[in-house]
Design a protein around this nucleic acid. Sequence first.
DNA 1: CCTATGCCTTGATGTACATCAAGAAAAAAA
DNA 2: TTTTTTTCTTGATGTACATCAAGGCATAGG
Lengths: 174, 174
Amino acid sequence: MIKLAYAILDRPKIELPLKKITVKKGDILQRKGDINTKAYIVESGLLRSYTIDDKGKEHIYMFGPENWLVADICETNTPCQLYIDVIEDAVLEVASKEELMERGPDIDALLRRLNTMQARIIMLMSSNAIDRYEHFIQTYPNIIQRVPLKMIASYLGITPEALSRVRNELSHRK
Amino acid sequence: MIKLAYAILDRPKIELPLKKITVKKGDILQRKGDINTKAYIVESGLLRSYTIDDKGKEHIYMFGPENWLVADICETNTPCQLYIDVIEDAVLEVASKEELMERGPDIDALLRRLNTMQARIIMLMSSNAIDRYEHFIQTYPNIIQRVPLKMIASYLGITPEALSRVRNELSHRK
DNA sequence: CCTATGCCTTGATGTACATCAAGAAAAAAA
DNA sequence: TTTTTTTCTTGATGTACATCAAGGCATAGG
């Protein structure tokens, strides 16, 4: 009977039609503190999620290119932690988190994301600026052409100046 | 019919009996590079998972106190990233990840973990040593008495010396 | 019990990266 | 186009934390 549940889970998901919206560069989809925020599936374009710390500095948490699910992981009715805005004009599917759950949670996607985050945490704890940058260009080779370097710096947890010097250093090495 | 699958998911899980083992302080349960590693549910005691970087330095990824699920998130047949060992004598339930999945994936637990990791990433990117420590003692008040400070330093991504000075500073501030 | 090992602290020094400031180049706006 | 705004770079300086070294306390093992 366990097997039964598993088999049902494993069936191709039935895709409910979700609301589709078009957004423009610069639009803000979610602010820190909003409640009952939506989840966005990126069909085309590019999103980013980020925080702003007490000193007013932005820290990019994640980029959301095509096919990514961008959402703040927080419980119903509790304020969210992240801002989400639009870096490149985008077409999005919008869903409440409940709708997504009803579609059937995508366990593989969740596990993949956990894996990504695990790798990021390990990187943040153990790598210097150069290694972080090299790791980034390997992991997201297609993002790098699409966003200003200062956003990549923000994602890596360093300043734009430091990133500039890292790139300089790397290009001079042979 | 979506509803059907959802209802089944939502039923109280049928708990298969899992293998139970007793392990002692210092035992190593998993090494970086192992494949098809197990998942451990901590019934009592305390585990930790960590990496060792190229300079031989340990970075604690996560503590595993009572009721935690400790596992490396990696795909079947690919080498894992983390070491797992025993900090306090422990009783564990051991399961292959497949067994866990058959029990029915615990979505809530997955989401909670994602949330924890999100908070950790944000913290690592934006906080200094003092804030990290204060965040830690708020989030894990019961862990702090149970592990040597150098492990907490390792979890926070700072050196034991730096942690010592942080604590000093905090106790002198009134 | 004594000895050894690990843990925590403190000081001196080093370093990676941040901050501040300014200018050139590129992109966006007008 | 010209103007304005952003982006990127480079240099000078500052700082948070790392590293290295040593000593005092515990705790554990023989």
